[in-house]
Design a protein around this nucleic acid. Structure first.
Lengths: 245, 245
DNA sequence: CCTTGCGATGAATCCATAT
DNA sequence: GATATGGATTCATCGCAAG
């Protein structure tokens, strides 16, 4: 039987360079956005200071790599995206999360990295932070595309363009963690049995979603703290599977 | 009493140049996207051929200005956006519709035109065209911002970041017409009693939404066919109002 | 089991103060 | 003046406890 997942600890670009050509069937990832605030001072605050209210009870580890300026974010994104392109099989899909602020830079970087940009799907979070007299920023965006041509796959069926999924505390293991339900849906863009790659695995939600949906998973995570959380979650799934067999 | 609406017939840039400085309270518009298709050949098809399924019964007038390439779309957008900036009062909000393909160009043009970009709201129209093995493109995007700082206005309250509104054929008077319900919601970004400007008025849905919500309206439309439709709809509203008084 | 109510939360943003 | 930090604000939605 094929091993359902592999988890590498290390810097994304470095580890990606060691992966073989054309060895994964989809790339699904949620890189650090380097967003938040208007000034350098705002952007370089710790991720908990930037994204979490001071009076909130739960504390999750900070994460790094979230303080690039716009130019270096674009440059760095292009680097890892083009490395992912090499690792991906022809016609493999790519899904990359972004917030509104980095959306244009992300679409640029995807194309600069050699991917064909095919659209923007939306994750609609039902409970946004309100703001008087303004539109709330209640969405995150999933910029997606493919490695070259993308023949229509009947087996996968039609995927929606909007996902309305709320965040549950019990299901959130990272400051910016995505709901398992969302990642299950998104992993359907990868053919059944195929390998999903996530170079910014965080607490491993992409992998959890992929495994539940019968895909395999390769994750890379820099922080040992989050890598450990991801490993625990993924091994927990494996165990569950063996029990139910 | 102040006249609730004015409708100018002519080319947007030309008419905008004749409007006085700082005379409107919000700009809400849906410019021709010049999108659709990857090649010049696709882009230069008539708007009915591009945007309407071939087996659909209803036929609406074609509209022009929808065949610019990316560079000139960016340039032209910057021109009319900076002209709108001049016409807008300080701190006035701007809402500009875009599809996913023109989203990065639109955010660039808004900033190049001197506006502060503040976010991307989403119009989610259920019932997209299905596409096997891909995410549907069921959304249009509302890039929004303001003329300089934007003090919080209590009266307006908090607006959502996503609008889930269906397109009804009976409510659609333009090939790319927006639902009245949607435009009513969006016009709430303008202070009550303020003037909403739409330099690409089309069949006048922005004006209809604004008037219903107690805002005034200035519209510009190039096509005499659509200008006539817009005038009829807006005058119909005025009449209704007078009757209910 | 269904309803009600209360408390907690959010990849935020603005503004005043301190360095 | 530019940069850095802290604190107040906003409300739809959800989780959980109580009725």
């Amino acid at each position: 039987m094929l091993k359902p997942f592999e988890l590498y600890m290390g810097e994304a670009l470095e580890v990606l360079r060691r992966l073989p050509d054309e060895s994964v069937d989809a790339v699904i990832t949620d890189p650090p956005y380097s967003s938040g605030g208007q000034s350098l001072a705002d952007r370089t605050r710790s991720t908990n200071k930037k994204y979490v209210l001071s009076n909130v009870a739960t504390r999750r580890p900070d994460f790094s790599g979230d303080n690039r300026d716009q130019r270096s974010f674009a440059y760095w994104s292009t680097l890892w995206l083009s490395e992912c392109l090499r690792v991906a099989r022809p016609s493999a899909p790519l899904v990359c999360f972004s917030d509104w602020r980095q959306l244009p830079t992300t679409t640029d970087a995807i194309q600069a990295g050699g991917w064909i940009w095919r659209g923007v799907a939306v994750w609609d979070k039902p409970a946004p932070r309100p703001s008087m007299g303004r539109f709330a920023s209640s969405c995150e965006f999933m910029v997606w595309g493919s490695k070259g041509a993308m023949p229509q796959r009947e087996a996968i069926g039609c995927l929606p363009g909007t996902y309305r999924v709320n965040v549950r505390q019990a299901d959130k293991h990272h400051v910016t963690g995505k709901p398992t339900e969302l990642m299950r849906h998104v992993s359907r863009i990868c053919p059944v049995g195929g390998v999903v790659l996530d170079p910014f695995a965080g607490s491993g939600s992409t992998g959890v979603g992929a495994l539940i949906e019968g895909r395999r998973f390769i994750g890379i995570e820099l922080s040992d703290e989050y890598a450990a959380i991801a490993r625990t979650r993924l091994e927990g799934l494996e165990l569950q599977e063996r029990v139910t067999e």
